[in-house]
C-alpha cells in the first residue's frame, strides 16, 4: 500500500541550526502514528517537514506516492495533508465565522461554505454563539475547538496534530481526543505529536520515538509499554538508557 506520508532520510533545521538527522518515517492511509519524545528532540520539526512548512536540507518527502520535497505548503494542504500546529492555530484578527469561511471556501468552493458552516456550528454550538467574536479573544480550549471544527467538517487524508493538549484543561483534552478518534473512524490518517503519552498511546497503532533529532525506536503500540517510553524520557533527562 502507498503510504499517505513518507519521509525518507530527512535532515532539516532552521538556518544554521540542525534539528533532524536522517529521519525516516511513514504513515499508511487510515493509520494513527504517535511521534513521541522529550522536549526539544525535533518532534515539531518533523511535523513541519511533513506539512511543507520547512523544506528538508537532505532526504525526500512523499505524499500519497508523489514526491513533494521542497513544495510550497499550500500544495501539501491541497494534497490532503492538514496541520494543527502547536500553540495558537487560528487567525486571531478574523472572527470565528471568518476563520471557518476561509477554510471552507478553499476546500468546498463558494457554494459549499454555507452548509459547511451549518455543520460546524451544529457540531460545536459554543462556536455558533461566538461566531462574530474575534478568534484571538477565545479561550485556549475554544481556539482548539475552532481549529478542530475546520478539519472535522472536511476530513483530510492526513492530520498532523502538534501538541494538541498543550496548556489545556484535562476535560478539553479528552474532548479533543474524542474528535480525533471520530476523524480516524472516518478514514483520516493521524500523525500525533505529543508529550502526554497516555492519550496518544490509547489512540495510535504505532509509535515512533525521537531523540536528539533521530528516530531511536519504532513499533506497534503494544510493544511500546508506557514504562519503556517513560524510561526513554528519563534517559533524555540524563539517566542511563533502557536495556
Amino acid at each position: 500500500m502507498t503510504p499517505i506520508l513518507d519521509l525518507r532520510s530527512v535532515s532539516a533545521g532552521y538556518g544554521p541550526f540542525h534539528a533532524l538527522f536522517d529521519v525516516s518515517l511513514s504513515v499508511q492511509p487510515g493509520e494513527a502514528v504517535a511521534l513521541l519524545g522529550a522536549n526539544g528532540v525535533g518532534k515539531t520539526t518533523v511535523a513541519r517537514v511533513a506539512t511543507g512548512l520547512i523544506a528538508p536540507s537532505e532526504g525526500s518527502v512523499w505524499v500519497n506516492g508523489t514526491e513533494m520535497t521542497g513544495a510550497a505548503t499550500f500544495r501539501f494542504a491541497r494534497a490532503g495533508v492538514a496541520h494543527a500546529p502547536e500553540g495558537r492555530s487560528v487567525f486571531a484578527t478574523l472572527s470565528v465565522e471568518e476563520n471557518l469561511r476561509l477554510s471552507f471556501r478553499q476546500s468546498k468552493g463558494r457554494r459549499g461554505v454555507a452548509p459547511a458552516l451549518d455543520q460546524a456550528f451544529t457540531q460545536f454550538p459554543s462556536l455558533a454563539r461566538r461566531r462574530r467574536m474575534l478568534a484571538g479573544d477565545l479561550s485556549g480550549g475554544e481556539q482548539r475547538m475552532l481549529s478542530m471544527a475546520r478539519v472535522l467538517v472536511e476530513a483530510p487524508r492526513l492530520l498532523v496534530a502538534d501538541e494538541l493538549s498543550l496548556g489545556l484543561a484535562p476535560i478539553i483534552v479528552d474532548e479533543i481526543y474524542n474528535d480525533l478518534a471520530r476523524l480516524r473512524s472516518e478514514g483520516t490518517a493521524l500523525l500525533i505529536v505529543e508529550q502526554q503519552i497516555s492519550h496518544a498511546l490509547a489512540l495510535c497503532d504505532r509509535v515512533v520515538l525521537l531523540e536528539h533529532g533521530t528516530v531511536i525506536w519504532e513499533g506497534p503500540t503494544e510493544d511500546a509499554e508506557a514504562r519503556v517510553v517513560a524510561k526513554i524520557f528519563d534517559h533524555a533527562a540524563g539517566e542511563e538508557p533502557p536495556a
Binding site: T51, F91, L102
Partner: peptide
C-alpha cells in the same frame, strides 16, 4: 478575507491550501 489572513500569518494561510 484571504488578504487579511495573509497579513497575520502567510504560513497558516498556506496550511488552508491558499497560495499566500
Amino acid at each position: 478575507l484571504q488578504m487579511r489572513a495573509v497579513v497575520e500569518s502567510p504560513r497558516m494561510t498556506e496550511l488552508n491550501g491558499i497560495q499566500a
